[in-house]
């Protein structure tokens, strides 16, 4: 039984929640909000294509930053800031 708990002990680490679910959610919200703030270009398609292409890159940058940083509080603040900023852009896109 103890073995099972040992396998799941990563759930107790704040860094797991920071680099795992939090990074994924923020990356998704940034990708969706990019539709509104990324310049559409002459073809009116850049704001649709570029977020899709950049999603793995955004995720990878945020993941490696949050995984390797020694300043976890700072990382939480940065992710929180990105989330609030991009959520506001999305809300404005839907109801603005």
């Amino acid at each position: 039984m103890k073995e099972h708990y040992r396998v799941l002990r990563f759930l107790n680490y704040p860094r797991f929640w920071l680099s795992g679910p939090a990074t994924l959610i923020v990356s998704l919200v940034v990708m969706l909000a990019m539709v509104a703030w990324f310049p559409p270009g002459a073809g009116n398609v850049n704001n649709i294509i570029m977020p899709l292409v950049m999603f793995p890159l955004i995720w990878a940058v945020l993941f490696f930053y949050t995984y390797l940083t020694r300043h976890m509080h700072q990382a939480w603040w940065i992710l929180g800031g990105l989330l609030i900023l991009n959520s506001a852009v999305l809300a404005w896109q839907f109801w603005g």
Binding site: L32, A36, I48, L52, F55, P56
Partner: peptide
Amino acid sequence: LAFTGSFFSFATAFGLPAMAIVA
């Protein structure tokens, strides 16, 4: 390949429908 592959998968699975909702 990891970058382009994950783009193909995510864009098809939920990226394009999500973009359709937002845009």
